[in-house]
Design a protein around this nucleic acid. Sequence first.
RNA 1: GCCGAGCUAGCUCAGUUGGUCAGAGCGGCUGUUUCGUAAACAGCAGGUCGUCGGUUCAAAUCCGACGCUCGGCUCCA
Length: 607
Amino acid sequence: MTPLEELRHSCSHVLATAILRVFPETKLDIGPPIETGFYYDVDLDHKLTAEDLAKIEAEMQKVIAENQTFTRREVNRDEAVGIIKKIGQERYKIGRLADIPEGEAISFYQNGEFVDLCGGTHVKNTQEIKAFKLLTIAGAYHRGSERNKQLQRIYGTAFPTPAELAAYLHQIEQAKLRDHRKLGKDLKLFVIDDAVGQGLILWAPAGAVVRQELQTFIAAELRKQGYHQVFTPHIGRLELYRTSGHFPYYRDSQYPPIIERETLAQLAHEGCTCAQLANKLTEGDIDGYLLKPMNCPHHIKIYASQPHSYRDLPVRLAEFGTVYRWEQSGELNGMTRVRGFTQDDAHLFCTEDQLPQEILGCLALVKIILTTLGMSDYRVRVGLRGTDTAKYTGEPANWDKAEAACREAAKTLGMPFTEEPGEAAFYGPKIDFIIKDVIGREWQLGTVQVDYNLPQRFDLTYVGADNQPHRPVMIHRAPFGSMERFVGVLIEHFAGNFPTWLAPEQARVLPISDKVGDYAREVVARLKDAGFRVTLDEHSDKLGAKIRRTEVEKVPYALVIGGKEAEAKAVSVRSRAKGDEGVMPLDACVEKLRIEVATRALPEKRK
RNA sequence: GCCGAGCUAGCUCAGUUGGUCAGAGCGGCUGUUUCGUAAACAGCAGGUCGUCGGUUCAAAUCCGACGCUCGGCUCCA
């Protein structure tokens, strides 16, 4: 354990000590340190409130003031059971004791009157805890399983010094200011309206600009890499998804099927129950349509629509395809977890020999995006199949090949990656690029997935050099992941200060008075003609107010125009990053912006 | 879906123990001002206090149900 973890872990023991003093009937589960602090899971009939938290915190201060020493004691298993019974914590601690493998040391730590089954380690004395704070109460299932009782989890954090704690709390406050849900509203990027539906994003004009620019950008890269653009509808027949496996494997995560009116009437006539209907849908006795949960079956049908020679491969079909998934209501979150989203999707059909090269091409695309946007704080995960075999389709031999291909490709990234069993798609393993949002939650953005299974399920073939039919391998990939989630994360990445090429409004012309209105309109027209997104601030405010508004709305450039500029056919440039950049000829300004946009320059650090 | 918290003008929020409590700032509109690098001045308009029901002489305020949002948990092809 690092010293910081040790401190936090000790603080969680102090928390438990205090809870037992305030609520002696509390049954304790576990209280580990975590990345941002610590928690303790407790089972208590009384619903803890914010006031309770304050009470507990006060008691913790007393425990710390009591100058309690942490002492370790190793015991054998029988003694351990005895101790747990003696302290009346059988409910969870006996189970936790059973988790400790035979042969490993079993230890208890004691501070003051509090004794806890614990592997350690701890600080020497409670007085070493100089700065802590209890943060929130949340529900958490025992052992993380929905089938178990939900306990109350108390989150807190601790630091070596009060200054560090204060800095951390300040940092949390600052982070909230760049939350995409707040900025999305402030900058009018997107809207979620309950009348439309939970988790369904309405892209307002400003947000649509950002998305459109990103799509245009990636589309150009796709052309270079030999992709073909396709378009497919938002729904497909249920039978299609029975074949692909989406319906059987993920039916609970889909919007319910759309059933044809006549079929429904017939079923009603037969007195069909809901249970029977569900059964008929599963068995394929009746058909219907599904809002598409993934684009692959549609793309597969385009591939399958004509015979392919090995000379045609790889076939790369790309589409900004919108898909719908029935995410649990408690999971929905701004733009990052939604029920309808558009993937910058593509499916590559290739020979097994071509697979490594094609994966690399996909990874390169992801890297181009991340580099262009200056996103370097991400991690890479190779998602492998887990132990629950019912979740996956296909033969183990193919899975082995696909997993090996992913692993090899990930190695070429030249950065560390983790291999995580259970994180694969049902049809194959994947390489995911994962980024944290402002409050530390991780989101999967770009993904590259290797799939031997869907080609088999759809009986896809190509004719090889031997004039025999062969099975292609598929790659599913989405370098942005979804436009919604990516833009959500991007808003936070830039704190709303988009680079000029992405900024919804790139420049705003600020006439000092309406005496120069004519020239101001001339400047706007010139910039619009050059292809920029520019507006005119015609309010009768003083310049300071106009500049303030431009700054608050995070417009990259304010172009100030007064009598001098009008006379000289010039503009006074004030940038978001540098402030007043001085007067320059209008032509020079146009050229400056043109270069900045063409090179997709990143925002300079603000002075 | 589960546990907990919240919901008052477009936005951010104030409304003590139920009784001129329906308010402020910003934004918007109108007028005056014509202004040189982060907020000119004045006036006006805007809300059935999330929804529905209940308690009460009286409900933004108390109770219940529902909806949505937020923080976690679970889930995430």
